[in-house]
């Protein structure tokens, strides 16, 4: 039997506090290449903070992070705390998509997508444009390359935001509730794009309230509870046969809201 391959991302005992408020209380997680990990949990349980610690948009207070050749020890006074240059190198290889798209409104769709490959990776313009065009083709927005973001629907903007992250050819993609700000009828197109990425073997970590999507698309589900990973396993087990009382309650609440949404949405297909 071959030895288990090294994980792409290894996190150990990660802690983060804001002042006296400890939000992450020692998270450990290995993510292997090709895994699609859905992260669920109640509001305030630390899901976003965790995602933001992975690309160090938030500086953790303690813990270790290994990603490819990067190794960080976040402990106060540690010598392997990330430098500015190391941070940039890490972020260049980890794509992140936000709830609020965050496209740059003064740039066209194409300019949004080629900006980072040109500035960060030093790609020549022609090459960056070629990559961007094939990505826009793929997300079905090739005809919008010259449009400014304000002319696009929310779903289109979010797909461009995903393309912008993909243009960096990341090894890992982080999605933080990327469909939460969308009108219900626009959620499907974004989820479909994410599902096709998962199918192609992209390694993904996604925070979502779409339990059905988590069940269909992810290879693994982790449940966050009060700053700790309370359950971790294949989605079918975690979501169908939750062990803890807390997860059972959480799922009941979310599924109930979901049903309520669908009833309120009435005419939606």
């Amino acid at each position: 039997m071959a030895a288990a391959p090294e994980p792409l991302l290894r996190i150990r005992e990660l802690r983060k506090n804001f002042g006296a408020h400890e939000v992450l209380k020692g998270i450990s997680l290995d993510v292997h290449a090709g895994e699609v990990v859905s992260v669920i949990g109640a509001s305030g349980s630390g899901k976003s903070t965790f995602l933001r610690c992975i690309n160090v948009m938030e500086m953790p207070n303690a813990g270790f992070l290994d990603f490819e050749d990067a190794h960080f020890d976040f402990a106060e006074g540690s010598r392997s705390r990330p430098s500015e240059a190391q941070l940039r190198a890490l972020r260049a290889r980890i794509g992140m998509v936000f709830q609020s798209y965050n496209l740059w409104p003064h740039m066209t769709v194409l300019e949004n997508v080629i900006e980072a490959p040109m500035r960060v990776l030093g790609r020549p313009r022609a090459e960056a444009v070629a990559t961007a065009e094939s990505l826009l083709e793929r997300i079905g927005l090739a005809d919008k390359r010259g449009a400014y973001p304000s002319r696009l629907s929310g779903g289109q903007q979010q797909r461009v935001a995903i393309a912008r992250a993909l243009a960096m050819k990341p090894r890992l993609m982080l999605f933080d509730e990327v469909t939460s700000a969308l009108d219900p009828e626009l959620v499907g197109e974004v989820l479909a794009l994410m599902a096709s990425l998962a199918q192609e073997g992209m390694t993904m970590l996604l925070v979502t309230h779409e339990i059905g999507f988590a069940r269909e698309v992810s290879t693994r589900t982790v449940f966050f509870d009060q700053g700790l990973i309370a359950e971790d396993g294949p989605p079918r087990e975690v979501l169908r046969r939750p062990k803890s009382e807390r997860l059972q309650q959480f799922l009941k609440r979310v599924l109930h809201e979901h049903v309520a949404d669908e009833v309120a949405g009435g005419a939606q297909p």
């Binding site: 500015e84 890490l90 965050n102 980072a116 500035r119």
Partner: peptide
């Protein structure tokens, strides 16, 4: 300028 625009830029590795 919404903070998110700065965040998305930093998250892509821009300085």
């Amino acid at each position: 300028i919404p903070k998110g625009q700065v965040e998305s830029s930093l998250a892509l590795g821009m300085s």
